[in-house]
Design a binder for these strands. Structure first.
Length: 692
DNA sequence: CAGGGTTGTCATTTA
DNA sequence: CATAAATGACAACCC
């Protein structure tokens, strides 16, 4: 999905279908069919645009201005508005449409005209209108949808539409050389582009980015491809039937498109367009592999059409020789788009439909696809898509999110697209908030080789998982192709931070920390960079990228073809990874330092205590010595007698130890003041020590 | 719900 | 000069 404007919360349940159909590679004109067949009361045409390819007629039909810069639609809708100059004035048109019993009000003149013609039974004309619009949006050189252009009086289109769009301008900035190469000269431009666009449109019809240089496949190859698609159509039909049977038996949680349509029809039977009820739609003959482009466009059996389209897509993508590899122009220019569209913003979570249930909408008919589990599916589908899908409103009144959630909820599913039980339970108990969303597009890449087979869904959508090493073209091819589906633009509520946070002009959808709650357990276990690496299909593990020596790292980068974005991301991953390790080491070191300091403090405190104890013991010993000395002093004086034989008073005399070793009895008055001071000082010190 | 701990990231400095 | 490491600061998340 590209060039999308923000989701609107009042979108119909069909919006889910639109997105999923787009996921499945369906063209939007099928969505328009859905719109016409089963229009919710408040179905908004512009919302139907959300899930479509820019070449879709809906872009040309889009009547609305670009409030949030929703890309080409605003560029194209004037053309679409004039797609059929034969349309009557708007007021008259609306009256006629009402008179035809169309149970909803078309919001644009083109819509009204389209509905008018369809409701009036002029499906061919309406389809022609679509085809004209498609031609207009596809570049406007008359390369309408097969069988559609013949009834497109105003389908000339405007070749300036695409290049003049802001996105195109961005692309030109990104890859001016490629753009130039793509439009070599102004003179044969019309005819050349005519052919190219026609071929491209065929490729788009098959829901693939067909490489321009390799588009010119031989008629034989096309024939074989068509044959293959026919076979796959048959398989798809059987698959759908079997799935329906399983569903009826209560063993399948998956809903086919028909299931949904029946659900919608039954819930709002009055909404079916007069004369175009689902039950009236005959199955398209299996041989008509271009049925979607045929004039009987409106009688497409949806499941068949879907299966048909998906299989074609697969057939191309799984082409072993990469015949459908995208051309360098697309490779260089287009990957830029999704990144600008990544900033999905989830709103209105209250009305979201559990993702896992939505997976059931996709009738993957290929065995390989069918064998995928819902977890694989969730892994491989773009986080953004699911993000948006989940958070889209179903509040049209027709389709209550809870109802659908519960309707689609059946235990013991044996479907290949069945849900993870945990997701189911979460969806039930927390239907408002539970979304198992793979952030940033859990696409096929995994460093774990064992996981690769489980990521083939993305491969089915965007190509097989590239060879991990040394397959330049594959890598680029798959990565770029993946972008188209992984980074479907639900660009919406572009947060300034999201736009500016990344220096590589790559905006991740939302803060991963916040997004983590939407991730499946498996995805949650992945780091942000791992998820990013997966999203960009970087063929190296994050661990490799981080731990690799510089030389190996540089040689690795040079040995593999990597887009600038991939290289940038790899370098970022390496920088972040190293910094993460450094931060961990730093913190560990810091903690070690802190612990060591704490230990030192403890040791020092213990030492201090020891010293204190020793000092106390010393003081105690000193005091004992002093007491002994005191006792000795008095003992000596008690034995001394003066000349008259009287005892010497110790208060009046003192013993003085002379330098020659003799002991003298001297009156205290004669003791020098210095000695007194010294003695007093010593006494004071002794008293102080005694306190300690 | 506030607050502390943990972790990742960015910016900057240092080696 | 490029790169890695180190580190402070900040934010988000979790308990």
């Amino acid at each position: 999905m590209k060039y999308l404007k923000p989701w609107r919360s009042d979108g119909g349940g069909l919006l889910h279908l639109t997105i999923l159909l787009s996921l499945a590679g369906l063209r939007l004109d099928l969505d328009l069919d859905l719109c016409l067949l089963l229009p919710p009361p408040t179905l908004l045409r512009d919302e139907l645009l959300l899930g479509c390819d820019p070449t879709s007629p809906a872009y040309a039909l889009s009547p609305y201005p670009a409030p949030g810069g929703w890309g080409r639609a605003d560029q194209l809708h004037p053309k679409g508005r004039e797609a059929d100059p034969a349309a009557p004035p708007e007021g008259q048109l609306l009256r006629e449409v009402r008179a035809l019993g169309v149970p909803f009000i078309p919001r644009t003149r083109v819509d009204a005209w389209l509905v008018h013609r369809v409701a009036a039974g002029d499906a061919d004309g309406a389809h022609g209108l679509l085809g004209a619009a498609a031609a207009s949006s596809a570049g406007g050189v008359g390369a309408g949808v097969d069988g559609g252009s013949q009834a497109a009086p105003g389908g000339g289109g405007d070749p300036r539409a695409s290049p003049s769009s802001p996105l195109a301008a961005r692309q030109e900035e990104k890859a001016p050389a490629e753009q130039t190469a793509r439009v070599p000269d102004a003179d044969g431009r019309a005819s050349e582009e005519n052919e190219v666009l026609r071929e491209r449109h065929e490729a788009v019809d098959h829901s693939s980015q067909h490489e321009e240089n390799e588009q010119r496949v031989s008629a034989q190859e096309e024939k074989s491809l068509q044959q293959k698609n026919e076979d796959e159509n048959k398989t798809a039909e059987k698959t759908t039937e079997s799935r329906n049977e399983r569903h009826l038996n209560g063993t399948d949680t998956s809903f086919s498109m028909e299931d949904l349509f029946q659900l919608l029809s039954s819930s709002q039977p009055e909404n079916s367009v007069e004369g175009i009820s689902l039950g009236d739609i005959p199955a398209l003959p299996g041989s008509s592999n271009d049925g979607m482009n045929s004039s009987a466009h409106y009688n497409v059996n949806f499941s068949q059409a879907i299966s048909h389209d998906v299989n074609l897509h697969e057939a191309m993508l799984l082409c072993p020789d990469n015949t459908f590899r995208r051309d360098p122009v697309v490779r260089t220019s287009q990957p830029q788009e999704p990144f600008l569209q990544l900033n999905s913003h989830t709103t209105n979570a209250e009305q979201s439909l559990p993702v896992a249930n939505l997976t059931a909408f996709l009738p993957f008919v290929d065995n390989q696809m069918r064998n995928l589990t819902s977890e694989d599916f969730l892994h491989d589908l773009n986080i953004n898509i699911f993000d948006e899908i989940n958070l889209m409103s179903l509040a049209t009144g027709d389709l209550d999110a809870m109802e659908v959630s519960q309707l689609f909820q059946e235990p013991d599913s044996d479907s290949g697209l069945s849900l993870n039980s945990s997701h189911n339970s979460t969806s039930i108990t927390k239907s408002n908030t539970s979304h198992s969303i793979c952030e940033e597009g859990a696409t096929g890449y995994s460093s774990d080789p064992e996981s690769l087979p489980h990521h083939n869904l993305e491969g089915a959508v965007g190509g097989n998982y590239p060879a991990p090493m040394g397959h330049r073209s594959d890598s680029g091819f798959c990565g770029d192709l993946a972008f188209q589906h992984v980074f479907h633009n639900h660009t919406y509520h572009l947060e300034p931070r999201a736009l500016e946070s990344n220096s590589e002009s790559f905006s991740w959808p939302e803060k991963p920390e916040k997004m983590s709650r939407y991730l499946s357990d498996t995805e949650r276990n992945l780091s942000r960079d791992e998820r990013r690496a997966k999203a960009l299909r970087i063929p190296f593990s994050v661990d490799e990228i981080v731990r690799m020596p510089v030389d190996s790292f540089n040689s690795m980068l040079s040995r593999h073809y990597l887009t600038d974005l991939q290289v940038s991301l790899i370098r970022d991953i390496r920088r972040r990874g190293k910094n993460k390790v450094a931060a961990q080491n730093c913190r560990r070191r810091k903690m070690d330092i802190i612990l060591n300091l704490e230990e030192d403090v403890c040791n020092l405190q213990a030492k201090k205590e020891t010293l204190k104890r020793e000092r106390a013991q010393c003081n105690k010993a000193i005091n004992i010595m002093k007491q002994k000395l005191h006792h000795l002093y008095h003992d000596v004086f008690s034995r001394l007698r003066d000349d008259e034989g009287r005892p010497v008073n110790p208060n009046q005399y003192a013993l003085q130890y002379s330098h020659d070793g003799s002991v003298l009895i001297v009156p205290k008055e004669l003791v020098t003041s210095g000695h007194k001071k010294e003695n007093r000082k010593r006494k004071r010190e002794g008293i102080e020590d005694g306190f300690h």
